[in-house]
Design a protein around this nucleic acid. Sequence first.
DNA 1: CATTACACGTGAGGC
DNA 2: TGCCTCACGTGTAAT
Lengths: 239, 239
Amino acid sequence: MENIDDEYRNYWETNTFLQTEELDCYFDESMSVSYEYDSSSPEGMQSSSSPPSKNIVSERNRRKKLNEKLYALRSVVPNITKMDKASTIRDAIEYIKSLHSEEKKIKAEISDLERGIMTSSSNSDNSEFNQESCCKRKRTKMVRCIDPIEVIELRVSNMGEKTIVVSLECNNKGDTIIKLCKAFESLNLKIITSSINAFSGRLFKTVFLQGDEDDEDDLRVKIEDAIAALNNPESPMSY
Amino acid sequence: MENIDDEYRNYWETNTFLQTEELDCYFDESMSVSYEYDSSSPEGMQSSSSPPSKNIVSERNRRKKLNEKLYALRSVVPNITKMDKASTIRDAIEYIKSLHSEEKKIKAEISDLERGIMTSSSNSDNSEFNQESCCKRKRTKMVRCIDPIEVIELRVSNMGEKTIVVSLECNNKGDTIIKLCKAFESLNLKIITSSINAFSGRLFKTVFLQGDEDDEDDLRVKIEDAIAALNNPESPMSY
DNA sequence: CATTACACGTGAGGC
DNA sequence: TGCCTCACGTGTAAT
């Protein structure tokens, strides 16, 4: 209670002539004197005033160091949105993430380029498949290596009212979504609604389309064929 | 009095996932009670006790947020030496620097490889811009005219529980689905579930992802930027 | 005028 | 023991 006063006496002085932290340096040296003879009375008064003023200067140093670190962090991150403390960390996180993805992309590029050098004139084979790197050059010529779509469940059922429901579950890796969409596009169906849902590493596609009940089996094999064709790098699909 | 409880409810959450503060709490509670009915007399008593208990909870939240951010930062940095606060930032800084140098190295390697390709397969185009040009060079072949994604509505909203819902409506022509998927892939979000629905010439994408409420605006502009980048044929996106 | 961000001093706990 | 790290509540300043 009563020690609040002398604590806050220099607290005022502290805050009056500095507000930003980069200035405490000279404040630190000049003012720290007042803290010094504070430490000369280690347990002179009662409870709470006994150990301070050695702690507070080290704590102050700790804060200062930490802020300097944060400032340094801000200096290595290019896209700083706000000078805010939390924003600094957030931007750093996002920047690291972007660097990660970019690194992955670039590594794929490199292996792509190396492969391109290897097989620049001869498209001999792509027996070992390096997924991911292939999808990029797709338009040039097909010869694509893929991670195949593994169909877990495929149901084609009639709902009545000339409506057929296709529900398909498969794994979800790489560009499975894209390929799946292409597979269905290629069938030229009379689609009423279509939806894809992804969670826990799997993909769930549901399509409502116009059709009679006797189209069910045809449609099932068509879908299976389209997916198989997309899985096969030799096929004219997978443009 | 009664808001003490909900203050300290998330106060518990705060301290549970980080280390050894468990014991301060009930000691602190007794202290903060004295502040509480102090606040009933807004400036009845002396200086320092008038406006607390609204500030202190927000300040507590701020610290919590900041610590979570720091924790997240630690999660994206592979080589963490100590669980220390300052060490986290220091490690992050060094990691970013190492990534920088590695990036430079890799880019040099890429341009080397490209030079090798150029000599072997005689490519004539852009000699300037050798960084990033690797991506563009692939695209010189495909120079496709794209039908751009026309965003009709984009909503990014927080659901609480650290969950953000992104709901996007746009036109659906050509390979809009594919481009949209790529745009979201490039953002490296912590996706919980994702769904795309198509009907009547439009596309509806809904994504549930992990994130705080203060990430909303950032996320929105990121999505907008990713789509804009994808619409722009000159951009390094749209590989 | 409210919210936000910040630095401060302080006590506790871990070496 | 002393040092270090931390979360806390608080006053101040800027948005």
